[in-house]
């Protein structure tokens, strides 16, 4: 370990020489890896953001109950009291057509001007019922059977569709992680083998001088690690910019979409991609060293 620390500068210097000796090939591999890590980062971001949206919608477990618009306010209040008594109902709020309009105005922000195209308020008054998600089915049935309720809308359909979408993205994620893993291992392993072949003379000299295998192998290990982790870092930076752009494009027209905090998502993604790329670089280097040794 002490020897490793003493020679750290030398190992980095040697890794630099190994890269420069076959610069074009190393650069091409570096950018290829950055590209595949970027694709992985974007799929992962979609997967994680999808999960966040599902969780957020689940937490907003509520149903909207529509009643006859000609009902008197007293009758509506009595209806609300009745609904409040149903097991699994946490809170019942009376949302007037004006309140619904205001809410939509707030949600749409700059885009709220679309509402001005309507001559009349397009929203109906509703009873907004916050419920316990576990009791969704029973509450729905009870609310639907309550006198005075004309129609009940819940977010199960939206949740199901989101779940399907998230499942597809997750499947794509697993597929891409596997593809990224295999391609990185193959690229790095090949580069290390080529590097060893190009440096065969130097390796033989070191062997004759008594250098241990670990000393000879470390610069090659470092080369693989630097190329792969470097590709990972570049991918993480590019993914950060791409996500910032995408969030701005999606978040502005769809302000009601509960997107995860951008900073947290990018940080989580960067840590994951950099660690994964370093790990794959290390594994690829070890595989390259192993095959080069067994061939010699």
């Amino acid at each position: 370990m002490k020897q490793l620390l003493h020679n750290l500068g030398y190992f980095f210097h040697e890794a630099g020489i190994i890269i420069r000796m076959n610069l074009l090939s190393h650069l091409t591999s570096f950018f290829s890896m950055a590209l595949i890590f970027l694709i992985l980062a974007m799929v992962l971001a979609g997967w994680w953001a999808g999960n966040y949206v599902i969780a957020a919608i689940k937490n907003e477990a509520e149903i909207s109950a529509y009643y006859a618009e000609d009902m008197s306010r007293d009758a509506v209040l009595r209806l609300a009291e009745e609904l409040q008594k149903i097991a699994g109902v946490k809170e019942v709020l009376l949302v007037s057509a004006e309140d619904a309009y205001k809410r939509m105005e707030e949600m749409l922000g700059k885009e709220a001007r679309v509402l001005t195209y309507f001559d009349d308020n397009p929203f109906s008054p509703i009873l907004e019922i916050k419920i316990d998600l576990a009791a969704m089915e029973q509450v729905l049935q009870s609310v639907q059977q309550t006198d005075g309720i004309e129609y009940v809308r819940d977010n199960r359909e939206v949740l199901d569709r989101l779940r399907q979408l998230a499942g597809a993205v997750r499947f794509l994620g697993y597929l891409i992680i596997t593809a990224v893993g295999i391609s990185t291992l193959v690229i790095i392993s090949h580069l290390i083998r080529t590097g060893i072949e190009n440096n065969r003379e130097q390796i033989n000299t070191l062997l004759l001088l008594g250098a241990p295998d670990s000393f000879i192998a470390f610069p090659f290990l470092l080369t693989g690690l630097l190329l792969s982790a470097g590709g990972g870092i570049l991918a993480a930076v590019l993914a950060g910019y791409a996500l910032r752009y995408l969030f701005a494009r999606v978040g502005e027209p769809l302000p009601f979409l509960p997107l995860p905090p951008l900073g947290g998502l990018v940080l989580k993604l960067a840590v994951f991609i950099i660690l994964l790329s370093a790990l794959l670089g290390l594994a690829g280097s070890l595989s390259g060293l192993h095959t080069a040794k067994s061939r010699s």
Partner: peptide
Amino acid sequence: PVFQDFKLIKGRTALENIMLGMRF
């Protein structure tokens, strides 16, 4: 060992070659 063909590492300076023999 002093080899007939020296076995010095190309691309490295004289000092680097000498130090390389001691690093391990």
